[in-house]
Each structure stands twice: as C-alpha cells, then as structure tokens.
Design a protein around this nucleic acid. Structure first.
Lengths: 127, 127
DNA sequence: CGGGATCCAATCCGATACTG
DNA sequence: CAGTATCGGATTGGATCCCG
C-alpha cells in the first residue's frame, strides 16, 4: 500500500526512493556543512575549505568531498600544478539544493536567536 | 575573522553556530526520514511510524524520537492507556523545517526521474 | 503497545605518518 | 598543497530480552 492512499498526508512523495537517496547524500556529520560552505563561497580551494570547516580532519574532508563529487553535488577542479591546486565548487545539482539552507536560516530567524552566535560579527540570523 | 569579511559569499550566516546546531539536529540516518514522515502524516503512532520507516529498528526509532523531542522538533503525546498508545507529531518548530522537504522534492523533479520510485503508484516527483 | 537495558558487531572518525 | 594509508578509540546500530 502506498502510504498516501489511506491518510491525508501533505506530500505525495512519502516513501519515494529518490527522496531517501537524496537524504542519504546530504546526511552525515559534514555533508551539509561542506555543501553550505562551498555554495556560500562559490569556489574554494581544499585548504580554504578545511580552515572554514571548524574541526574537520583531513581524512573526513577528503572522504566526504569524494562522496559528494561521486553523487554529482560538488565539482572537483584539479589544475595539475606543483604544488597542487584543487578547487571545489557546486555542480548544477548541488546549487539546486541550496534553498535548503535558506530554509534553515528562515527557521533560525523565526526563533529568538539571542546568543546563537559566538562571533563578534552580527549575523543576519541574530537580527 | 568572520568568514564573510573577505569573500563574496552569498550567505551572511556562514559559520553561524546556530546553523551548525540545526544541521546536527537533522543529520544522522533517520532524523530527516522521521521528520518527513511525521510531517507528511500529521500524527502517527509509534508502531505506524515504525512500519512506514523501512528498516528502522526499535532502538533507533525510540532513540531518534527522543532526541528529536528533546530538540523540540517533535511532540510526544502519551495517552496513558493500557495497552500504551503514544502519538507523535511535529512541534511548531518542526513544522517550520518542512520547507526543506519541499525543496528536496523540487530538486528531484528538476532531474530526470525515470525509475526513481519502485512503487506502482506514481509520485509527483516522477511526473 | 511502546518502550528500556544489555551485549556485541560494524562503522565512523580522529590522530598520525607518508607521498608526489 | 592536496591528498592517501593505517591504526585504534568512540560512536552507531542491530538483535534480543525484559517490563508495565
């Protein structure tokens, strides 16, 4: 039985395999952080991304980037230079997931956001 | 240095702790699936939810539900009956995260979606 | 029926060392 | 600089049993 047949649920895609696939692709500790950071900056070198993602280890970042690239969400651009220079940016598909982060920001703004940010610079989510 | 100060990134909230907190709350293998399923159905008993989430174990579902409740995303309603009857629904905060799933569906629809759904019933994402 | 407790396997993940 | 390889601890997750 399709889950929608006997309930009044609001989404037609409950149980859709592709939904689960996408959720898998962006769950995990670092996936969303990486997508968000790369998407926000447009283009990032490996080392820059590593600095921006607080606490990520070398291993995790390279693994997660490899998975995101395999899933077609980020693009890896190797300039074949010495020393190496590699840039990451979102693919068209990856860009298409960015609205998720707009939603999360809207979600944050609708709540009281007193001390949500430790940094001195004020963020839009705190205004 | 705030990550936005010297780049042209599109989001003001890069590095915002609250963003990371929310990402943590919805990452993990089952969190998004649970939120999506409960949100889509409005109200679900524990056993119903368990049947709908393919492959979830007793332990995982109860653990993840407890975390989602502690994070204020789902509401647990215990009717104190024998045998027990417990219902779950989204809190106001949980509801506010639902647009994420609309985004994922839009994301799916913009791609070729040939055999993304095994079920016989056609889903909107396949049309 | 809706959990909690326990034991154990799988995997995740961090630290470190190494490479072109 | 941008990775890969390896080890080991921490965490996740499954199976089972128990309880009101």
């Amino acid at each position: 039985m399709h889950p929608n047949e006997h309930c009044n649920c609001r989404y037609a895609d409950v149980g859709c395999d592709r939904m689960e696939q996408v959720m898998d692709q962006i769950s995990g500790k670092w996936k969303m952080r990486i997508l968000f950071m790369v998407g926000a900056h447009g283009t990032l070198r490996y080392g820059e991304l590593r600095k921006l993602l607080d606490g990520v280890t070398h291993k995790m970042l390279s693994n997660q980037l490899k998975e995101l690239a395999a899933d077609g969400l980020v693009q890896r651009i190797d300039y074949n230079e010495v020393p190496p220079r590699v840039e990451y940016r979102l693919t068209e598909n990856g860009e298409a997931l960015m609205p998720i982060f707009d939603d999360i920001q809207k979600y944050i703004r609708r709540q009281s956001c007193g001390d949500c940010c430790k940094q001195e610079t004020r963020h839009t989510c705190c205004e």
